[in-house]
Amino acid sequence: MKRIRWNMGKGMILCGFLLLLMCGLSYAQEFPTKPINMVITFSPGGSADPSMRLLASKAEKFLGQPFVTTNNGGGGGSVAMTILSKERPDGYHISGCSSTSLIRIPQFREVPYKHEDFVPIMHFGAPPSGLVVKADSPWKTLKEFVEYAKKNPGKVTYSSMGIGSPMHLAMEFIAKQEGIQWTHVPYPGSGPAFTAVLGGHVTAQSGSSESYPHVRAGTIRLLAIHHEKRFKSFPDVPTFREMGYDFINESVFMFAGPKGIPPSIVKRLDEAFRKGMEDPEFIQTMEKMEIVVSYRNSEDLKKYLEEAYDRLGKMIRELKLPKEPEKK
């Protein structure tokens, strides 16, 4: 028995050496030489997980190595990002995440990472968002809605997927600029928040794409959207900027890795994903899933995130949103 164990131990050490040797060799060759682990910080379902998986499958062709994709949607993505921040920065461990988990969550509560702990690779799109009311309500435009809210302080209620979400911030942005008082009713997720407006329990919803089938069916009215450009599918719906509110939903779907990945590797990944975005199937699917496609490369995205981080921090202070008290 003893002998067998000893042999096993020897075998293991030998195997270990061989593996180390292989790892050493792999650095000499061009990245990537083995499958890349990617953790998606969302649960299956929704639009984030399938779009990231699809883009990864397109990028594989240009990398020559497959992605091994896992899901971990815990803590709004913060659980997976914590694990990722401790991974080796060799480019074989990356995450498909939302900018939310990088710049928003650390500003609201204590997490064991900062957004500087990661190197952004690229972003490919964002979930759409906008303001909707029921179609049988009297407001045809955002202006009328704001006028009504001004005249009836405290009467308007709106639902959103949660406090501090871009949808919530959008409404508070208007409230501050126009001096309106309206009540935010948070719901656990966009679906329940939309059900609330559909059932008439709240006046409006600041939400995402779940309402679009109803907008097309004529039961719900989309008043304005939080994006730079108007949507192709709803060309008549104005943006917040056009209506005089300088607010844009800044959250994006992106890829990131732990800090310290060599720039050449980041560039290689960035390029592969960018080329993947040109795939017709990708473009088509994004359209079907109502994802607003946009692109920034690694450096631009880094700058963008830093600016967004500061803007958000300023907004949180101005709006006096609740924050986790710092522990001594």
Partner: peptide, 11 residues
């Protein structure tokens, strides 16, 4: 959605 069908009141 991936198949291009929007689940909604008209489905």
């Amino acid at each position: 959605m991936i198949h291009g069908i929007q689940p909604g009141p008209l489905l």
